[in-house]
Design a protein around this nucleic acid. Structure first.
Lengths: 225, 225
DNA sequence: TGCCGAGTTTAGACGGGTCTAACCCTAAAG
DNA sequence: CTTTAGGGTTAGACCCGTCTAAACTCGGCA
């Protein structure tokens, strides 16, 4: 049996791996989980003993297949919960993350199945993030780009908003930046700030690079304009 | 902040207190929580430090008002969850206990409020047990008797089935013993076994004293027959 | 090639929750 | 009033997850 904390580490490594595609360093995990580096090192020892991570001392870790499966299970729980809370308990898009973070470790397989069923086996959560399937096969990374990578003047459709900060999410929602909306990229400043107009809002919104890079657009099936 | 484990102890003490109305002894708590006596003693030290229990060494504990409030909060969570799982996620009456036991420590005030709202502020859970109100005032103990305390031939209405064992609950449900049904007491054997016929089942059912004592009947408002 | 700094790991401590073994108190029986 | 059995508490150990302080490694730069 794995502890909640171990699950958190595996999930963190998984998510960092999705972002960087490289070995994950101690300090990155420490940052992500808000603990010190030695704490991470000792946990990595334990995860290595259980063959949940591959490790090279001083050079970071990657998940083993088994570790990845565990991480996917937790991510599935998390995203199903987010979807359920918004659909059936009237939570706002921006509020669900913290609640799901606490609950994700404590639901049974049975609960997971019932929630998935109640939602009709959804494929994405309210932020547009893909929900791992019940078989926990590693999803192929969907192609996609952040809105910061487009030319000024382009109109794109938001697929995913990968931020977790509720304040940021509220702000984005207020300014019409949510999965599904169309965004016209108005300006990309030299320091990375993106200004865009949403189909759902009157005024344009400006987002610093750190936020804009979390707003993703699905790679279009090359609509031969 | 209280740990999950502390909450479990407070809840256990609360529930034992409902049953026995006396100081609760170390060994009773140990039994309830499936832990050894020294473990309970050391936990009681901590709860006493925090003024959540009143203690007399060698003679057991009672909850302080503050301890009772915490216990009521947990019980409220538990019973709301049980109600929600049966009403909205299609759980069976007999299955909800374990799931609620895990979740009860991890839901926010907000979640609690939304669940209560979705259910319409229910007053009892699926087992007929009263759900503490949101203000966490200690409920006055409802009058009531177990079916073992009636004369043979009496017809009673089941108000609460206070067992927690899913196997026992399944068995009872199969034989028509659930909150709301009418039960005709057919026989009370000298060793305490109760045989009764449910309005919801064809054949009578016999219950050993240990089970029968958990099947409660609300004290009727003395219907002057 | 050798040094240096950033980042990682080791060493050692601590609080939480649990255990077993040993000791001690309480209350009931004589 | 004394004994004793049963149960409660103390003592001491262990694992978990965390920390700080100190030692070490890697890789870039002189």
């Amino acid at each position: 049996m794995l502890s909640d904390v171990m699950e958190d580490y595996l999930k963190a490594i998984y998510q960092l791996q999705r972002e960087t595609d490289d070995r994950i360093k101690t300090s990155e995990i420490a940052e992500e989980l808000d603990v010190t580096s030695p704490t991470v090192t000792s946990m990595l020892d334990k995860l290595e003993d259980r063959e949940l991570v591959d490790r090279e001392k001083y050079r970071g870790v990657t998940l083993t297949d088994e570790g990845e499966t565990v991480a996917l299970e937790i991510v599935r729980h998390h995203r199903l919960l987010e979807a359920y809370l918004t659909e059936h308990l009237d939570y706002d898009w921006s509020e669900v993350h913290a609640e799901a973070d606490r609950l994700e470790h404590h639901i049974s397989e049975d609960f997971e199945a019932r929630v998935a069923d109640a939602l009709g086996e959804p494929e994405v959560d309210p932020h547009g993030s893909p929900i791992p399937s019940a078989d926990l096969e590693p999803p192929t990374r969907p192609e996609g780009k952040s809105i910061a990578e487009f030319e000024e003047g382009t109109v794109v459709t938001v697929a995913e908003v990968a931020d977790r900060d509720p304040e940021v999410l509220s702000y984005l929602a207020e300014h019409g930046v949510e999965p599904g909306v169309e965004l016209e990229i108005i300006e990309i400043a030299p320091f990375g700030m993106v200004t865009a107009r949403s189909s759902e809002a009157d005024d344009p919104v400006s987002l610093p690079e750190s936020v804009a890079s979390h707003v993703w657009v699905a790679a279009p099936a090359e609509p031969e304009a």
